[in-house]
Structure formats: C-alpha cells, structure tokens
Design a binder for these strands. Structure first.
Length: 359
DNA sequence: ACTCTGACTCAAGACGCT
DNA sequence: TTGAGTCAGAGT
DNA sequence: AGCGTCC
C-alpha cells in the first residue's frame, strides 16, 4: 500500500520522479526517507510485503483490473484532447505497483540493513502473526483488517513525517473487543458484514445496522437467516456471498509461522557503498543526501533501541475541540468500532506508548 | 426531527529554506 | 486505489 | 506554515 501511495503522491509537474534513464524513483524516494525517519526515531521496522492474493479476492481484483484499464484509456484520451490537469488526474488513476517496484524496494531495504518478509498471501495476516508472537511490538498499517487478523496492537499513521496531520493511533484489539463487548468470532463476523476486501457489501447495511444485526443475532449465520426470512425483504444478501470462506481466511490465513527460520529477523548496518551505487549511480539521487542518510542509519544501529515515541505522542492535542472531534468521528464507520478504542488509547495511554517496535 | 446510507469530492510523500 | 469529509434523500 | 524541489 505504501509503495502505491508513493507512486501516486511523489511527483513533480504531474510526473513521477525519474532517474535520467527514465525509470521511476518515487517509490525509492518515499521508502528511503520514511524508513530513515522511522529508524531515526528509535524504531526498528520490519517490512512485510504482500504475497499472492487469496483466491477469494480474485473477484475484487478483477474489478480493479477492469477499472485500471478503463482509466488507462481515459488517460490516453486525455493526453490527446484533455487539459494538463486531466492528464495528471488519470495518470494517478492508472498507477500500478509492478514486480520491479517491489524488487527495487527490497533491494533498498537490504542495503539499508532493514529486514523484511514476503508474506505467503496477505501482508496484514503475516503482520498479525508476527505481532502476536512478540516478534514485533505492533503491526503498523492503515488497514483495519489487521485487527481482524488478530494482531494485538495496530498502529496507524506511523510515518513520523513532519506534517503528519493525523496523530499516530495505537489500537489494542483486546480493548476494542472489550469496548464492543464481543468475542473475536463476532468481531470477525461484524467486519465481514461491514464490508471486507473479499466480499461485496450488503446494500443498505452500514456500520450501525451491521453492529445492530450482529448484536441481535450473534452470528453471521443467524443474521443471514434473519435477512432471508424477513417478510419485508428489507435487505438482500448478494448472490455470491461466501461469508464462511471469508471468515475462514480471517481465522486461518496462509502465513509463515513466527518460529519459521525465515522469521529470524536481523537489523544490520547499512551497506553505504551499496546504497551509493544503487541510489546515486543507478538512480541519480544526490550523493551527499544519500551519504548523510546512510550515516544516520549507521548511528542508529549502534544506539541502544530506546524509545523516542513519547516525543511524538506528546504532540497529540487534547483540547476540547479535539475531543469533540474525536467523539464525532467515533460515531462512524468500521472505524467506529475501532476508533472507540482509539479514544481510550488516547485518553489513557497518551504518552505511555513504548516503542520497542520489536524487542 | 432524527438516523442512516450512499453518492460525491478531494488529496495523496518528505525535505529544507524562508 | 484508499480515506476522509460533506451533503441529500429515504426511512423511521 | 507555505512552497519549491527532490529524480
């Protein structure tokens, strides 16, 4: 996901940044400096790449593919007849993360001494396993599915960027379940009903209705039964809606077990000359910047991994306005469930966040 | 009057100088 | 693509 | 904070 957003966002004159040979460098730029910043704040990150998507997702993916193709056509057309703005707009829509982008990012991480793993399928599921096993402190993702995959802690907006508009959120699964007064199975059912990546959403059922239905009936089986037997035909389950399969994916995703040798992660010193070769010689980055960045990395490898997260959490404002704002948001969306959680986390843990992003 | 969903819109990353 | 925010209209 | 620049 982040590679994608780098490709979309890191631009100049509507074009992605490129080396002089015309290869895109936006993803490397984004990865490099974000990772640097994270490390510089005392976090030892572990990256998880997506593997092959589960079969259940193929329907969704096919739709996306079709939309991309459509966007490509519009992009071509815009280049002929449209304004510069239109061209740029469609250009962003046609962005795809390629195998090459992924491989270059991995090469970059290797040179930086940052470990990573390629998940068998969904990265979020793998993150959850590693977090649950204590290999890392938490799973950082924007995707709420991470909780559904049973990660004990989810961090959102972990970018440490200067102009982070969103504060870092630390969401604890146990508190979330507690707040909802649900067990994990119900929580999974709720998330499926709310609309997950694998299934079409049920029309007319939004966050509130979903929550109510699960509360009233307990399980998806019962909910579906209720909906289908409702004489008023208020809701309609989509034709092809294998919710059991989706549930199975959340309960037993295809992941690398945490005690697998592949999950024996090491944070190492950066290969400075390798970085220079790659980023400067091959991709045209500024040598001074790369070297000073590499130096920072080096320094941080030695530094005892002491948390500096506090410094960032303290920035979270707590005015009355802010609180109101949170309350309002708190009442919406899937996030609803979890955001409620976040509120707790905020009012309580605020500054307590420890950042052994791993041990 | 109030609640809820759905449709629409917009922006999207990080650095460093002023 | 995603999310976040806003708005209108249907339903209760 | 705003804005040009990174490649």
């Amino acid at each position: 996901m982040s590679i994608y957003s780098f490709l979309v966002a890191v631009r100049s004159d509507g074009q992605q940044l490129m080396s002089d040979t015309g290869e895109t460098t936006s993803h490397l730029m984004g990865m490099f400096y974000r990772t640097l910043r994270i490390v510089d704040n005392g976090i030892k990150p572990l990256y998880v790449f997506d593997g092959a998507p589960p079969k259940l997702k193929s329907g969704e993916l096919a739709k996306r593919f079709a939309r991309k193709n459509e966007a490509s056509e519009q992009h071509e057309e815009a280049k002929e007849t449209g304004t510069a703005e239109e061209v740029e707009k469609f250009s962003r829509r046609t962005v795809r993360v390629t195998r090459e982008h992924n491989e270059e990012c991995r090469r970059l991480l290797r040179l930086m001494g940052i470990p990573f793993i390629v998940a068998p399928t969904e990265a979020e599921a793998q993150c959850a396993v590693l977090a649950r096993a204590g290999k890392v402190y938490a799973a950082a993702s924007e995707d709420m599915d991470t909780l559904t995959f049973d990660s004990p802690i989810l961090l959102r907006h972990l970018t440490f960027s200067e102009q982070r508009k969103e504060p870092i959120q630390e969401i604890h699964l146990d508190k979330t379940l507690e707040g909802l007064n649900m067990d994990r199975k119900q929580f999974i059912d709720l998330c499926i009903l709310l609309g997950c990546d694998y299934l079409d959403p049920v029309p007319k059922i939004g966050p509130n209705t979903a929550l109510k239905l699960i509360r009233d009936h307990g399980t998806l089986e019962k909910v579906v039964e209720f909906i289908e037997s409702d004489p008023k035909k208020k809701y309609a389950i989509p034709e092809d809606w294998p919710y059991q399969d989706a549930r199975e994916l959340f309960l037993h995703p295809d992941v690398r077990s945490a005690d697998d040798p592949e999950c024996d992660f090491k944070w190492e010193a950066p290969d400075v000359e390798g970085l220079v070769q790659f980023l400067v010689n091959e991709k045209g980055f500024n040598e001074d910047r790369v070297r000073s960045a590499a130096q920072k990395l080096q320094k941080n490898v030695k530094t005892a991994q002491q948390s500096r997260l506090e410094g960032f959490f303290k920035a979270i404002p707590k005015t009355e306005d802010q609180k109101k704002d949170l309350k309002r948001k708190h009442e919406e969306k899937v996030a609803d469930a979890k955001k409620k959680k976040k509120e707790d986390a905020k009012t309580k843990k605020e500054t307590k966040a420890k950042a052994h992003l791993n041990s």
